[in-house]
């Protein structure tokens, strides 16, 4: 597989999604609600970091891309940069994103485009992330009154970041509309089983300037990058 043939914009988009979400999940280390979840969240974070490294390396030097780009040059979805919040927010973010990622990678893996080989490996990992998110959505939604309420709030709060996933990305040869239909159907089904309702309201921000894929991010992302890049940038040219 000649990885250099990957379309740059698409590789950056998918690579940044994985990089940023992995970082957010990494913030859970030492804070998870139960030890078994420490292990599970770290597994997902490590899978995503592995995907990010492969994708970014096809575009350039993985560390230069991760550590030396400014905020406006990142192409990840705003969804994945959202702070962890409580466990319900993290699970809602996982549910929305991993369902999208799984549906997308399954299509890419089944096609003969430049991402087929990479997606074929990642789709197995992502299937597990999706399953993890669904299992927890069911338990929190249909658990106690408190957990139901927290899960409902989390699903609502992140809903407005979900529209961006289905805007066409240059170099990604997928039918965005069909992807969105499948996503809505799957999310609707999981939420129904979790005794939650599909959130109402818009699925994207009312800002014509765009969103993450165009390099426009939310405020928490700048602080996340400051933390992530600080040490690397403090020692220009050093190797680690």
């Amino acid at each position: 597989m000649t990885t250099t043939a990957l379309p740059t914009a698409a590789a950056l988009a998918l690579g940044d999604d994985a990089l940023v979400l992995s970082h957010r999940l990494g913030e859970w280390a030492g804070h998870a609600p139960v030890l078994e979840e420490e292990v599970a969240l770290a597994n997902i974070a490590l899978d995503l970091l592995g995907q990010a490294r492969v994708l970014l390396s096809t575009v350039g030097d993985e560390d230069e891309l991760a550590y030396l780009r400014e905020e406006r040059a990142f192409r990840n979805l705003q969804l994945v940069e959202q702070p962890n919040g409580d466990f319900a927010h993290t699970i809602a973010r996982q549910l929305y994103f991993s369902t999208y990622q799984h549906l997308l990678y399954a299509r890419l893996a089944g096609g003969d485009g430049p991402f087929a080989g990479l997606a074929a490996k990642a789709v197995k990992e992502v299937a597990y992330h999706r399953d993890h998110a669904e299992q927890w959505t069911l338990r929190l939604g249909d658990g106690t009154e408190l957990s139901h309420e927290r899960m409902r709030r989390a699903c609502d709060a992140l809903w407005r970041f979900t529209g961006e996933m289905f805007r066409p990305v240059e170099g990604l040869d997928v039918d965005s509309e069909a992807l969105e239909r499948d996503w809505l159907e799957s999310i609707g089904e999981v939420l129904r089983r979790a005794t939650l309702s599909v959130p109402e309201g818009p699925r994207s921000g009312a800002w014509t300037a765009g969103a993450g894929r165009e390099g426009l991010h939310t405020e928490p992302f700048g602080r996340m990058l400051a933390e992530m890049q600080h040490l690397h940038r403090s020692h220009p040219g050093a190797s680690w």
Partner: peptide
């Protein structure tokens, strides 16, 4: 023992080191 090391996961200076550190802290939970 996860805590002092997890303190550096978000600031690990290369992606390779970050993956190693996350895996190590995860092992400690295990």
């Amino acid at each position: 023992g996860m805590q002092p090391e997890a303190n550096w996961i978000t600031r690990a200076p290369s992606l390779r080191r970050k993956a190693i550190l996350m895996a190590k802290v995860q092992d400690e939970a295990g």
